[in-house]
C-alpha cells in the first residue's frame, strides 16, 4: 500500500471514529434503566409544535423519562421511518402527532405488534384501519368552534350576517371547527345567517384575497367574519380595513379567529379583532408524556383512559378582557 492511500485510510478511520463516538456514548447512556418514550412530531417548523415538544420535554424531566423527539418535516414517509427506528429502539411508549391520520396506520400497527402503547397527539390516528391507540390527546376543535359561535351570538345580539373562512379542505381541524361553529350557531343564534362560506387554506394571503372577493359580492352586508384560524382572520382584517368596510349598522365588522397566535393577540389589544380561541399545545405535550407513564403510576386511571379512547384538551375563548 502506498503512503498516500495509507494516509487516506487513516483519515477515513478517524472520521468513522468521530462519527461513531456520539452513538456509542448515547447508547451507553441509554443503558440506564429509565423509561424511554418516543415523540414523533409532524413538523418543528411551526411554533405550535415546538410548544408541544417543550411541554413534553418538561413533563418527561419531571417524570424521569428519556424522551426521543423526531421531526417528520411534514412528510409521511419520513415519519414512518422515524417511528420504525423508535420501535427498533424498543421505546416504552410512542407519542405520535401524525402528518396524516390514515397514512400513519401501517406503522402504528407495527408498534401494536411490538406491544408498544401508542398515543395520538393533536391530530387523530384513524382507528377504522385496525390500528390500536390508547388515547387520542387533542384539542377539542369542535368545542372551539362552538365557543366561536357563542361569542358571535353575544357580540351580534343574536342576528346579523356572518362570513366564514374555512381551513384546508379535508384537514380534521378545519372540518371539526366548522362543524362545531355551524351546529352551535344554529342552536344559540338561529337569527345569524352565514352569508358566504369559503376556503382560504389557513393562510393569511389567501384569507385577505378571499375576503376581498367576498366583500365584492356582498357589499355593505357583512356583520362579522369567523375564521378557522388566526392567519385567515388577520388577512380578513386587512381586507376590511383597506376597503374601509363597515357593518350595515355602521359599526366595525366583528372578527373572530382561532389559535391565539401573537399577531392576533396584538390585534385584539388594538381593538381591530374581537376574539380568538386558545389551544394549549404545551399541555398537550405534558398530557402525552403523563398518559404514557400512567400505567406504572395508576393502572386504574390508565384503564379508564384506555376505555375513553380520547382525551380532549380544553380550549378557551380569548377576548380583550383576558389580555
Amino acid at each position: 500500500m502506498k503512503a498516500f492511500s495509507m494516509k487516506r485510510l487513516v483519515i477515513f478511520l478517524a472520521a468513522i471514529a468521530i462519527l461513531a463516538a456520539p452513538l456509542v456514548l448515547t447508547s451507553a447512556m441509554a443503558a440506564g434503566k429509565a423509561m424511554k418514550f418516543g415523540l414523533s412530531l409532524s413538523t418543528l417548523n411551526n411554533p405550535f409544535f415546538v410548544t408541544v415538544k417543550d411541554g413534553a420535554e418538561k413533563e418527561a424531566k419531571l417524570l424521569k423519562v428519556d424522551l426521543i423527539v423526531t421531526d417528520a418535516q411534514n412528510r409521511l414517509d419520513k415519519q414512518i421511518s422515524d417511528i420504525e427506528d423508535m420501535i427498533q429502539k424498543k421505546v416504552d411508549a410512542l407519542l405520535i402527532n401524525p402528518t396524516d391520520s390514515a397514512g400513519i396506520a401501517t406503522v402504528v400497527k407495527k408498534a401494536n405488534k411490538a406491544g408498544i402503547p401508542v398515543f395520538a397527539i393533536d391530530r387523530g390516528i384513524d382507528v377504522s384501519t385496525g390500528a390500536k391507540v390508547i388515547a387520542q390527546i387533542a384539542s377539542d376543535n369542535v368545542f372551539g368552534g362552538r365557543l366561536q359561535a357563542r361569542f358571535l351570538a353575544k357580540a351580534l345580539g343574536g342576528k346579523g350576517n356572518v362570513v366564514e373562512l374555512e381551513g384546508i379542505p379535508g384537514a380534521s381541524a378545519a372540518i371539526d371547527r366548522k362543524a362545531g361553529f355551524e351546529d352551535e350557531l344554529k342552536k344559540v343564534a338561529p337569527g345569524i345567517k352565514i352569508l358566504s362560506s369559503q376556503e382560504a387554506g389557513f393562510d393569511q394571503a389567501k384569507g385577505l384575497q378571499v375576503m376581498q372577493n367576498i366583500m365584492q359580492a356582498n357589499p355593505g352586508k357583512i356583520d362579522a367574519v369567523v375564521a378557522a384560524n388566526d392567519s385567515m382572520a388577520l388577512g380578513a382584517i386587512q381586507a376590511i380595513q383597506q376597503a374601509k368596510a363597515k357593518r350595515p349598522n355602521g359599526g366595525r365588522i366583528i372578527v373572530v379567529g382561532f389559535d391565539s397566535i401573537d399577531q392576533a393577540l396584538e390585534q385584539i389589544r388594538k381593538g381591530t379583532m374581537d376574539a380568538t380561541i386558545a389551544q394549549q399545545p404545551a399541555l398537550m405535550g405534558q398530557l402525552g408524556v403523563g398518559s404514557g407513564r400512567l400505567n406504572t403510576i395508576s393502572p386504574l386511571l390508565y384503564s379508564k383512559l384506555k376505555n375513553a379512547q380520547s382525551f380532549p384538551v380544553p380550549v378557551k375563548t380569548v377576548t380583550a378582557g383576558d389580555l
Binding site: D203, A205, L208, G235
Partner: peptide
Amino acid sequence: MLTARLDSAQPTA
C-alpha cells in the same frame, strides 16, 4: 410586496 401587503413576513410565505 407580499410582506407589505400582509404587514407580516410569514415563514411559509
